[in-house]
Nucleic acid binder design. Structure first.
Lengths: 209, 209
DNA sequence: GCCTGTGAAGACGTTCACAGCA
DNA sequence: TGCTGTGAACGTCTTCACAGGC
């Protein structure tokens, strides 16, 4: 396949495929067809083949895909063959829950440093042994700990300011849990995680759909 | 505008517009143009006008939109002119953080009941005064408390089972925080909130550009 | 002049359908 | 025969460009 633009949705699906493949490895499944993987991931089989085709040829005609190999290849495509250092800002309920969450570590994400604006929280040590730094030290500590991805768990009115500090580091990828659209220049990528937006979708569905 | 299918993305954006409009109300802004709102929401102005056009005419030519009115209309479209009752399952770090989170209440979402499989947690009262019920009682308690939207914060291997119980109630909308694709019949809508997928997107961006 | 509302054009992503190969 | 890989067809969403109206 020629060089072509890869849809953002393809990357999202690759991530979902990898999750499903991991489960299959655990279950001892060794070979999977696009049809079977499609059923598990609730997508069209052709979609899976096309998604993979952007990056090469991974299957065997008449057979399917070898689960372990495909998982390895997808993780490599996504850049998950290394550990990523996260910097988290805002140690409220949500921030602390994220730190304690097991899934991150399992996927190769590691919290390298934590920050809060509240001086009552600064200096406190978290269960993981991580120290809470004041926001003022964000740039310095992020550089020292090689933070590559910023996680924003602050109230919405503080999110842009934190993003600006991340840009200064520079951190070029931000996971934003605050319900605002953050403005960043090209070269920095923001992903938003917004529960309320999802809930609103459900409310709309229940109301109109 | 004729009857036409409304893109899912439109609903998501309406939710984002409403957030921006709320901020504008707080700031005392009374009129906004599609251009201005577009800047704040990082979208194309024509997109906003088209999104709104699916539902009617809300603006004044040569002027723009009245902030308060537009906010009211969008909330009505989304079905946010009522309170929605949530049922949450899985009172781990994340589940508890969600319960404590302020944003839900502010948008008209209310936790009506909570569940956990761990019998050590069952019977405990949460800070909000909400009692943790055993999962066995899900169907009954959801019916009694008029739960309309189910929130799944369990480990992935339990998510489908919980979804099945929700379907029994029946709860026709599910917000799923577990990193698996849940299978549901038509008539039930699932929205997934998956941090790891978002992080994988960022990792890919940092790796491949 | 300015900004909304909207048909038409364009870009993009998904699905089909079949050729190619084990 | 069975399943992948892929160009072509299709459908959907977004953007343009301008008519309509304050």
């Amino acid at each position: 396949m020629k060089f072509m633009k890869i849809p953002a949705a393809t990357i999202t699906r690759l991530s979902i495929y990898s999750r499903a493949l991991e489960a299959m490895v655990d279950e001892g499944v060794t070979v999977v067809s696009s049809k079977h993987l499609a059923d598990v991931c609730s997508v069209n089989p052709a979609q899976i083949r096309k998604d993979l085709a952007y990056f090469g040829q991974f299957g065997v005609r008449g057979v399917g895909y070898f689960v372990k190999e495909l998982l390895f290849d997808i993780k490599k495509i996504l850049g998950l063959n290394k550990q990523w250092n996260l910097a988290i800002v805002g140690m409220g309920n949500l921030g602390c829950a994220l730190l304690a969450h097991q899934n991150f570590a399992k996927q190769g994400y590691r919290f390298a440093c934590a920050f809060d604006a509240d001086l009552m929280k600064v200096g406190r040590k978290l269960a993981t042994g991580l120290l809470i730094h004041p926001v003022d030290e964000l740039v310095r500590v992020c550089r020292e700990t090689n933070a590559e991805i910023g996680v924003i768990c602050t109230p919405p009115d503080k999110a842009q300011e934190i993003a600006n500090r991340f840009l200064e580091v520079p951190v070029k990828a931000i996971l934003n849990f605050a319900p605002v659209q953050i403005q960043v220049p090209d070269g920095c990528k923001v992903e938003n995680v917004d529960f309320t937006v999802k809930l609103d979708n459900l409310a709309y569905h229940l109301t109109a759909g």
